[in-house]
Design a protein around this nucleic acid. Sequence first.
DNA 1: ACGATTAGTCCATAATCTGTACATAATCCT
DNA 2: AGGATTATGTACAGATTATGGACTAATCGT
Lengths: 381, 381
Amino acid sequence: MGSSRGVRHDSMRARNLAVVLGTLHRSGPHTRAALAELTGLTKTTVSSLISDLLEAGVVSESGAVRAGERGRPGVAVGLSGQRVATLGLEINIDYLAACVVDVTRTVRLRRTRPADNRNSNPADILQGLRDLVKETTAEAEESGLRIIGAALAVPGTVEGGVLRSAPHLGWRDVRVADLFDLPFAIDNEANLAALGELWFGSRATDFLYVSGEIGVGAGLVVDGALFRGTFGLAGELGHVVVVPDGPACRCGGRGCLEVYAGQDALLNGLDSVASLVEHLESGDPEASAACERAGHALGVALTSAVHLLDPGKIVLGGIFAPLFPWLEAPVGAGLTARLGQMRATPPALVVSEIGADAAVLGAAGLIIQRVIADPAQTLAL
Amino acid sequence: MGSSRGVRHDSMRARNLAVVLGTLHRSGPHTRAALAELTGLTKTTVSSLISDLLEAGVVSESGAVRAGERGRPGVAVGLSGQRVATLGLEINIDYLAACVVDVTRTVRLRRTRPADNRNSNPADILQGLRDLVKETTAEAEESGLRIIGAALAVPGTVEGGVLRSAPHLGWRDVRVADLFDLPFAIDNEANLAALGELWFGSRATDFLYVSGEIGVGAGLVVDGALFRGTFGLAGELGHVVVVPDGPACRCGGRGCLEVYAGQDALLNGLDSVASLVEHLESGDPEASAACERAGHALGVALTSAVHLLDPGKIVLGGIFAPLFPWLEAPVGAGLTARLGQMRATPPALVVSEIGADAAVLGAAGLIIQRVIADPAQTLAL
DNA sequence: ACGATTAGTCCATAATCTGTACATAATCCT
DNA sequence: AGGATTATGTACAGATTATGGACTAATCGT
């Protein structure tokens, strides 16, 4: 619940810096006068706040604008991506990835390094990751950017900054944050992919992002914020019960969604998603049947998810994105039929536009978000 | 997301009033010096804030206390229930209820009026409710309490202050708030019952409250706050899919939890929960079987709920409370078996301690909460 | 060229918190 | 019993930050 610390003068200013920066972030460049209008602060105060933000390099002046027809033109002030940026990182089953994103949420740099991380030794992989960080940071700095923090996406559960369990990597209880001398965050891949979709995808503020990978995960975004649950484990769509007495799942349960719609079930012996798409395009009945089964199971699990989570819409991502043309009908039909009386219309079912990069981008965006939400602290103003 | 309005001097003080009042609310009476320590504010500031809160009548001094062994003893200041109170209201299928709760969350008054509200005319019932409000308000004022707001619990969905649909009452799109000349809120019965459990029950801050009534609902509380979803419709546990091709449910879906664990399914022809309990106590096999079925279905639905919502624990309330001895085993077994590998231990399964009053109490508590969270606004300081 | 209009800055004022000093009230020690 | 010690709560000057009106700046229309 709400903090119990009192508010002092400096937190008032910190808050107002965040209000001004947040307004520029939400609704683009504005003159000081317009910002005063929008925030309810006086022109004097806005001027003073902007001057601090200019100095920190997160905003810049971008030429004169005439608001109305008459009068002195104002100077538009907007976010500037020239100086401050953050690093997004991802450890996945078969690659390491990094990206650099500036304050305007523009992607400035992207690196992927193939690797075989299945049942790997954490120390080796983390050394590789540190090298990747060094490289990308150096390259970003060459173009004048200052990296002020990093976040890491991992395919597993995270609690209190520690990677608790990543079954596909074969890792348990790995502490990662200490390895970097930057402000650092670590989170689950599906959570960060949901945030990636929020900031770099459709830009809706309310949706459930469904991440199809080897496992199936989901991240719920409500009013622009990620819902994490009590222990940060919310959104485990993959183990929602679809058939109470169905086949055993590796989690110990039976008939979980993952059994029907996980990557292994979908590929059904094929070696890659690309090859599955080929088979589907050429009308292979076995591939179609697998998709149909997965779509049906997804429809059932998503019905439960809609009743419990009440998402604004549903975004299919990960391997579900390329399969969307074959999933849309069965999933949509299941949702519509089952939600029938409960809502005027079921949540819209759409495909993610950012595909495999969602998680790294979300990671970088997470730190950008912190800058926007509290520039005074993150930029030491 | 964060407000876009700037912070001025008066909001700094408003926030600090809330910080001090909130600290007293969370951790009981304290001296001014202790409050200064806890909040990080200076003794001077705390003294000044307390003097405003004393004047508003929400706190009072309660005698000398010695903190350490030496030194001048301080004067303890704590919440005072003598002057400010709120009204909780409930429209249910077969009764109207009201209660008055003071700032210390002590119940000061309680009224229940039996009624047959099935398929009723909203205007009639609302007139009855207004009479009830007048009566209880008058009685509360006689004992020196000022009623500063009211909230109403209804068995249906609420959106933007309007009762959208209450199938068991037969109401649709009824606007209620305008009928009262008090600050007023209206919310779903399961949501408010969850808040009742939060403030008047076990006092845990993280749990899923499961409300068994004619329908089955749930309210998720995370870190002391209710999770409502995008449209305020989250927590519809009753229509989570238990058996994808099970019997049709009145919602249009098939095999929903409500089909197996709603009041009608449990009673199985009996006329009341009390009579069901009698049959269970005397070992009636048919009654046991119904309970077993319901418990099994609840175990399946709650497994999905745990994966999606990640609750701290699970509290069974409403008609599930008296049936807890017969439900605990099948529900608990289902959860443990299905959650197996995913968590060290499944969330604890406990029974609600406040029974049928949960919703009215939660309603009154909701307005108390607003006073604690923003005394400056709600008490016009 | 001049008035109207709007943008941005200057400066005195106001609101609020901080920090030090001090009066107060209890216990401890001799 | 009396002074030393310790802690509470208040007073007052000082610091920080926002406000509001006056002023300067820049552009348009006539």
